[in-house]
Nucleic acid binder design. Structure first.
Length: 518
RNA sequence: GGUCCCAUCGUCUAGAGGCCUAGGACAUGGGCUUUUCAAGCCCAGUACAUGGGUUCGAAUCCCAUUGGGACCA
């Protein structure tokens, strides 16, 4: 998708205060798809701070998670920004303090912000102020000249109320916001309505009267999110800001800052939220929320990528399974959904199964080995060491598996003799005599055949013996004797893998277990 | 509480005024196949939140109500 327009540049700004949340991953995914679709650049900038304790660890987790999903970036912390269009780094907020300071000083000098030395901390304000007081903050410092004198703590506030006064002067009928108190009528403040375009939802607007002086930095060295992100978007030449809907309320503040700094406005696209089953924003109380948790449960990156891409976006056809390249080809922000989407793991499970079935046996085997070892069932078993055997097991489980993490539990009977209830051996309503006969037949056949043999050959041999009767009479007890499970793959497949010695031992043991109690 | 955003099956969604007695997928139920479970194939049920407009015609456009969510406090 070559476009003759200027190349798009998008970014994500994860804050390393936790693991890679699926919401962040989805935002990354959409940025990635958009960038790739338009032959543009995808930037990762880390919104770190000094206060975060395990920031480094979380950052690694986030970047690893993105890599695992198959989302790679053109500029970001690991690549040093050397791949495209020169260096826009550093890509960590803590490395850019001088840049922020420069713009902070500029705004102070132009009188567009002021240093506020109010001692009132957050708790005090909460208690002493009427509702909305935080929005209508006024303090004696706002009229003072900027000074660094004194070591008192201060915050830097954007002087929004001044601009409101300007609008007020333009229209004589307008009252000063302070006089109006809480009720700010948007019609009265028409002139102060911040409007911006959103690719997903068309026009959005916000009454400026609701954001009076707001804090943009805690000090010259500690910029806050809204300020830092505006500076970085400008410095990094970001053309499209694609992020979650929860950022809509930040946008007007950022626009005010963009205008104060004389930057140009990027295009905005706000993505619908990913919700939990109760329709509130997906959070820990809903269960797994981070990409590494899904990885740990044995979801394939392709499946999670495909599933997440279709959460809040759809290319319009009836297809469900899309390889990454196809998603890139089809992606468009215009087709992004407006309403939030519930993260439905049932559908993810199905999709994961589809991707598991697409894997080659070799790939599946190497993906499963860590899970087998983790489950402890593969007691570094001879079967794991024996690749031929492992492959056969994989082929058996491939159509059944929804998550790789199930592999241990599903196949542990290959690695150790199964435990089961005596009654499970009985097929429908067989009598004791019939069961005894079945065991005789099984031992007879198993002693006769030479294993290993293909399951087709085995089946042929057994059917010869069984004749035209009810096959379950022989096959159900055999299957249970071999697997100990109520549900499992067929007896011939298991037989083929276990070998004669093991099979005979298990059938004999089954007979013992069955006879014991009578 | 204030502001903003959103609204098609249980869930993800198709739908850009007539192709809609609303299509697909997951999930659910039933069937085929079958020694069991999967996989596969076939079938079924289930949705345009409500009320007003606009229009010859509305899931689609406008308004209100209701409901949900986000952000701020």
């Amino acid at each position: 998708m070559k476009s003759s327009a200027k190349p798009v540049r998008v970014r994500i700004a994860p804050s390393p205060t936790g693991n890679l949340h699926v919401g962040t991953a989805r935002a990354a995914l959409f940025n990635y798809l958009f960038a790739k679709h338009n032959d543009g650049t995808f930037v990762v900038r880390i919104e770190d701070t000094d206060t975060g304790r395990s920031t480094k660890e979380f950052e690694k987790n986030i970047l690893d998670g993105l890599h695992w999903l198959g989302i790679d970036w053109d500029e970001g912390p690991e690549l040093q920004g050397t791949r495209y269009l020169g260096n826009h780094g550093p890509y960590r907020q803590t490395g850019r303090r001088e840049i922020y300071k420069k713009y902070l000083v500029q705004l102070l000098n132009e009188g567009k912000v002021f240093a506020c030395f109010c001692e009132k901390n957050k708790e005090e304000r909460k208690e002493s102020s009427p509702r909305h007081a935080a929005d209508l903050h006024s303090c004696p410092d706002r009229d003072h000249a900027y000074t660094l004198a004194g070591s008192r703590p201060f915050v830097i506030r954007y002087k929004n109320s001044e601009f409101l006064e300007y609008y007020a002067r333009k229209q004589e009928t307008i009252k000063h916001p302070a006089e109006l108190g809480v009720a700010v009528d948007r019609a009265i403040y028409q002139g102060a309505l911040i409007q911006f375009n959103d690719i997903v939802r068309d026009k959005l607007e916000y009454p400026q009267g609701h954001l009076m002086d707001f804090i943009i930095a805690k000090s010259l060295h500690e910029p806050l999110y809204n300020f830092a992100v505006v500076v970085d978007d400008h410095e990094m030449k970001i053309t499209h800001v694609i992020r979650g809907e929860d950022h809509i309320p930040n946008t007007p503040k950022q626009i005010l800052l963009i205008e104060a700094l004389g930057f140009s406005r990027p295009e905005y696209a706000h993505l619908p939220l990913i919700l939990g089953p109760d329709r509130s924003k997906l959070s820990k109380r809903h269960g797994a929320t981070s990409v590494d948790e899904y990885q740990g449960q044995g979801y394939l990156p392709e499946a999670l990528f495909n599933f997440t891409a279709l959460l809040g976006w759809n290319p319009g056809g009836e297809q469900e399974i899309f390889p990454k390249s196809e998603l890139i080809k089809l992606f468009s922000l215009e087709k992004v959904q407006k309403g939030g989407a519930i993260f439905d793991t049932k559908k993810l499970d199905w999709m994961n199964g589809e991707y598991i079935r697409k894997k080659s046996i070799d790939e599946l085997a190497s993906l499963c080995i860590p899970f087998l070892e983790h489950a402890g069932t593969a007691n570094p078993g001879e079967h794991v060491r024996n690749p031929e055997c492992l492959k056969k097991i994989m082929a058996l489980e491939q159509p059944r598996l929804k998550k790789l993490s199930e592999i241990g539990e599903r196949t542990d009977y290959f690695f150790k003799e199964p435990e089961y209830d005596r009654e499970l051996l009985k097929w429908k309503t067989m009598s004791e005599e019939e069961m005894a006969g079945t065991f005789d037949t099984l031992i007879h056949i198993l002693s006769d055949v030479t294993l290993p043999q293909s399951k087709e050959k085995l089946e042929e041999r057994f059917l010869l013996e069984i004749g035209t009767g009810d096959k379950g009479r022989i096959l159900w007890p055999l299957r249970v004797a071999l697997s100990g499970e109520k549900f499992s793959p067929g007896p011939f497949e298991i037989l083929e893998i276990l070998g004669r010695e093991q099979a005979l031992r298990r059938v004999n043991r089954a007979r013992e277990i069955y006879m014991q109690k009578v």
